[in-house]
Computed example of a mutant assay.
Amino acid sequence: MSAPQALIEFFQTEAVEYLDRLDQLMSDATQATPDATAFLASARALRGSATMTRLEGLPDFTSTVERIATGLRDEELRWDQRLHFAVRGALAELRALVTRAALWSDVEQRRARTQSAALAAVAAGYLATSAPANSPAARVLPIARFYPDDGAPPVVQRNPNPPITLAQRFRGDIAAAAGGVAREGAALASSEPGPSQLALTDGVRRALSGLGDVAESYGATSIGGLATRMAHAPLATSAERAGVQAFAQLLMNRELTDQQLAQQVKQVAVTWAGAPAPEPAVVPIESLLYRGHSAITRARDVRDQLARHWQRGTTTAPEAHALFDELSDLLDLAVTT
């Protein structure tokens, strides 16, 4: 899928900045584990930027880097020099792909996906509790060696039984995006009316739009469509905000099967479509009554309308009778303040 040139240029500028941060973190930790929190923040930002372009294969590759960063933060992955070299090589490949974003074709798409699969396969070897045997750094091969530039088939092939399936990746990415919606929604729910609440409402809308983009990138149109509808809603009532929170919590529930999730999303969509319209604000009747000078001004308008009825010979019409009654009331209101 192609993207507007302006969007591609913005992505390239942004992605290079994130890659520079990641490279710096890797350089600062040649013999140690990089700062997991900072690494995850930059990797997540890079993945979000790549998802925005919707270039086939590129979001998959950046998601793999983000999952490695998450594993480091959660201490689910061990880190040694071999994994260090693999990630450095992947970042170099990502940088090369970013420069070709404006010329994206099946070649770049295939390259991004094979790189993603290869990096995931390397990272899967570091999930075990026991450390692998130490090996000389000279035996570590850059990942680019497995992908010839002469058009020959790559040495590394897609794993038919990958450690992380597409469905699992979808649930992970959609849960992460829903978590952002839940955080923004919680902040909005505890806010006081005023300018800050309007800003928080915009934050919820942006999070919902991001959730919709993630869902659409996986072809989950039911989730994407509902998230977009919620993003365009006023979000002014507690019922609407509670509906958004319930939707986010549903998507974050990893215990549900895919079928159960689909059914419950459908139910939420029906409930949201049937949500009652916001009740109109109650206006005190005192604010609708004319008093003093305003009553006199209105009485003059009514007098002129009655004069036109007299000229047309329609003083017996219901509208004229209503004006006579209003004029009588205005005379009483004119002496009030």
Rank of each mutant, 00 (worst) to 15 (best):
D258I: 09
L250E: 03
D258P: 00
Q260T: 07
I285M: 06
A277E: 07
L250T: 01
P284I: 13
Q249I: 04
P278C: 06
A275D: 00
Q263E: 11
A273L: 14
V265R: 12
V283M: 07
Q264H: 10
R254L: 15
I285S: 13
T257M: 05
Q260E: 15
A269C: 05
A281L: 15
Q267H: 06
L256V: 08
T257K: 02
A273Y: 01
V265L: 04
Q263Y: 15
T257I: 11
I285Y: 11
K266C: 05
R254I: 11
A269V: 03
M252D: 06
M252Q: 15
Q267S: 12
A275Q: 06
E279F: 00
Q260K: 02
A281T: 04
L261A: 13
A242H: 10
L256W: 00
L250K: 09
V270C: 01
V283Q: 05
A273G: 07
L250P: 00
A262F: 05
D258W: 05
A277S: 09
A248W: 07
P278S: 14
V265S: 10
V283G: 02
A242E: 15
D258G: 02
A277C: 01
V282S: 13
W272S: 06
A248Q: 04
A248T: 09
I285K: 14
P284C: 12
V244H: 02
A248C: 06
Q264R: 14
P276L: 00
A262R: 04
R254T: 15
Q263W: 11
A248M: 06
T271L: 08
L250G: 02
T271H: 08
N253Y: 00
G274S: 14
P280N: 07
A273R: 10
A262W: 01
R241H: 05
I285F: 10
A277G: 05
A275H: 01
V282A: 12
G274F: 07
K266A: 15
Q245W: 00
R254H: 08
F247V: 04
Q259T: 15
R254E: 13
A242W: 03
E255P: 06
T271F: 08
L261W: 04
I285V: 15
Q263M: 12
A269T: 09
V268E: 12
E255I: 03
I285N: 11
Q264N: 07
